[in-house]
Nucleic acid binder design. Structure first.
Lengths: 116, 116
DNA sequence: CACAATACCTCATCTGTCAAGGTATATCGG
DNA sequence: CCGATATACCTTGACAGATGAGGTATTGTG
């Protein structure tokens, strides 16, 4: 739990793009990376993750291909496209704007009486 | 425009509680305050706002009463309860955690190669 | 008198999340 | 050898929040 999903909603696709900026990866590994990066404070539910992959592939932000594992379960790898890279870059600006706006609104009550 | 609603989702109720921490207010005014606090970068859609009021009142975080305006349109005022105050305080911690987690994930690609 | 601003409300629809279910392979302890 | 656990993928239906579109009523302004 830790982080409510409604607080992450809107970041899902961009988080996936962010991890794919480091190189091609596959679903299970991406979620494990997310867990590690957040000290186990967050991970996607599987259904959410695969829904996001489908959405991103349909919009052209990523492409997929099957790996040629000799052993173990097959893996579907994802690769970020130029469109996906642009979307990722834009998401960083969006996130900075969001932090600014939410900070102002959530701390409105505390910063308001500055006239004292 | 400006801020995607999915990035605010999850903060809606807490933003309203934050403004009510400053004192009782009513829907129309709250939304105007939000617009000003964010330099017109953000405001709620009316339907979103009133949905949130109903949700907050049903959960006991706020209570409402009709103002006794002598002139002009009638106003429904909202007042934050103790439960609402506790929820607001908790939301600040949640928000700080969320910022930390999203920062880590969105900037993962940039901070990763630290071994150089 | 038309229009804008104030001020409230509802309903149907859309989107993203997720519980629950499924498939298949590899490894490890007993 | 068998059951459990980990890896790795997928789908479906239900649910919750946001919102477009519509509505009501009052007051002030040109």
């Amino acid at each position: 739990m830790s982080i409510a999903s409604d607080l992450i909603r809107g970041h899902t696709d961009n988080i996936i793009l962010s991890l794919l900026m480091k190189g091609d990866s596959y679903g299970y590994r991406i979620n494990k990376d997310i867990m590690e990066l957040t000290d186990r404070r967050f991970e996607f539910k599987e259904a959410t993750l695969y829904t996001a992959f489908r959405r991103l592939e349909q919009s052209g932000a990523i492409i997929s291909y099957w790996g040629d594992e000799q052993a173990g379960a097959r893996r579907k790898y994802y690769s970020i496209t130029d469109k996906g890279r642009r979307q990722y870059i834009e998401s960083l600006t969006e996130w900075e704007k969001t932090k600014n706006v939410v900070d102002r609104l959530l701390y409105a009550a505390k910063h308001e009486p500055e006239g004292l």
